[in-house]
Design a protein around this nucleic acid. Structure first.
Lengths: 137, 137
DNA sequence: TGCCAATTGTTTGAAAGTCAAAGTATATGG
DNA sequence: CCATATACTTTGACTTTCAAACAATTGGCA
């Protein structure tokens, strides 16, 4: 089959998701890296600075600055790590969890919008396709 | 069906694509906004500054700086617009087209990798799913 | 035990990317 | 022909980022 077409269609999908995310984040008055941190902490629970930085694809130096701001804004809290006193656990505050749920609802809404015209079985198939692709990275 | 799962799986796919793109761009020694411009110019042909800025989701002020750098680097060239002397057309140079084709090949390779275990009919179905979703943004 | 290398997080200085607003040149419509 | 709109550039400020230097803690090993 014409794989150029598939490749370009995936890129188009990615570009549109990206634009949507930037618009949604700006509209809610947040910054992209901070929402990214909220998304990851919301999905994974408390993480060490190192772990969070790795998942976000930034250095710990950069993360320190972001977490400083987010702590100021009341979105996250630093906590001592019981087993390793070098490490610091970062977790969402109540307010941070509100922001996470709110943002997650937007994702959910987009997902509904994109698959509104799909039948249930098509949606199941789409899910399995995404899962299979996610395993191949 | 469980739409939370679909939503999260799509987000996971997006995150992995995003990480992949950043790694690939950095590895090739390019910057993300410049490769983004190359991708858009490669797919659309010559564009006015205004049009390119809109497609990239940045202001024309920001774009002016980027195009200055890219022109220095030999990736793009500014040309006069015949019908409107206020406008400036930006287009890829030969070298810019090389970069575009090279980057496009990487996308193609990823697309192959992700769907390596798909049958031809599954790949056709996946393509149609992406196309239908792209229409719903 | 005691020391040295590795690890974790913070700080600092510099660079890139970005925007809003002001400025310049050109176009368009009365 | 003039007023207003449009296209691009410039400027100043801010955010995000990294690399490198630093401080505290851990872990291995001699």
């Amino acid at each position: 089959m014409n794989n150029d077409l598939l490749s370009h269609t995936i890129v188009e999908f990615y570009e549109k998701l990206s634009s949507w995310e930037m618009a949604v984040v700006k509209d809610a008055g947040h910054s992209l890296p901070q929402i990214h941190a909220v998304e990851i902490l919301g999905a994974n629970g408390d993480l060490r600075m190192k772990e969070l930085a790795e998942k976000m694809g930034i250095t710990t130096g950069t993360l320190t600055v972001q977490i400083d701001k987010m702590e100021q804004a009341g979105l996250v809290a630093r906590k001592a790590h019981q087993q390793d006193r070098r490490s610091i656990l970062v977790g969402l505050t109540e307010q941070g969890q509100d922001v996470y749920r709110e943002h997650d609802q937007l994702h959910h809404g987009l997902s509904d919008q994109l698959t509104a015209k799909f039948s249930d079985s098509e949606r199941e198939l789409l899910l399995s396709f995404f899962q299979r692709m996610n395993n191949e990275f």
